[in-house]
């Protein structure tokens, strides 16, 4: 979404994935992980749940790749899967199964101090985001974290661009109130 014409094109990568090319799949995962995560987090409001849903969605996508009729629109199709799975996950939220992903990620951090600070900040943001409506959360994540345009967002969420801008404005204002001026001052200096 943030990149208008990525290279190699999605259609080429999808064609390779149809023949089981894991490298092509890897490129697609790297290209759209953040977008998928933003969509899932927007629906669920929880990072771990969002990561699980993103992984499920990618597996489902590669399993049913024949259903993607317009391979050039792979990302739209993938985001639809992510959103549906996130909604389903939210509806039927169950106890998370033990995953090998969590300890692996914990081990992957280079510095425990940076990791702790980042994690604390992420928790604060997650709590603030949880106070927003689903639409506000989705829009602010897609726009401010993944760089979607209002046009992309309006197509994805089936709202007008004006409505998308309004939601973003309100979402930012609410986040500022929830996060407090000190945290936001730190952000605005970046």
């Amino acid at each position: 979404m943030s990149s208008p014409s990525p290279t190699p094109p999605d259609a080429d990568l999808v064609a390779l994935c149809l023949r089981g090319d894991s490298d092509a799949f890897d490129v697609l995962v790297r290209r759209y992980y953040r977008s998928a995560f933003a969509v899932a987090l927007g629906v669920l409001g929880n990072r771990q749940d969002a990561e699980d849903v993103v992984q499920d969605a990618f597996v489902k996508a590669v399993d049913r790749l024949e259903d993607c009729r317009e391979t050039s629109k792979f990302v739209q199709w993938l985001m639809m899967i992510v959103r549906n799975r996130a909604l389903s996950h939210r509806t039927y939220r169950k106890i998370r199964e033990t995953s090998e992903l969590l300890p692996e990620i914990a081990e992957a951090e280079d510095s425990p101090y940076i990791d702790a600070a980042r994690s604390e900040l992420a928790d604060t943001l997650q709590k603030a985001l949880a106070t927003l409506s689903q639409t506000q959360r989705e829009i602010v994540l897609l726009h401010d974290m993944d760089g979607w345009t209002h046009r992309d967002i309006s197509e994805r969420l089936e709202i007008t661009e004006v409505r998308s801008r309004q939601h973003l404005f309100v979402a930012r204002k609410l986040l500022r109130e929830r996060l407090g001026p000190s945290l936001l001052r730190e952000y605005s200096n970046d």
Binding site: Y33, R34, F37, L41, R47, E51, V54, R118, L121, A122, L125, Q126, V140, L141, H143, D144, M145, F169, V170, A171, R172, K173, L175, R176, Y187, S188, D190
Partner: peptide, 12 residues
């Protein structure tokens, strides 16, 4: 409110 919110801490 027109400034982007820094959500990089959530960036996966």
């Amino acid at each position: 409110s027109e400034l982007p919110t820094d959500l990089s801490a959530l960036d996966p």
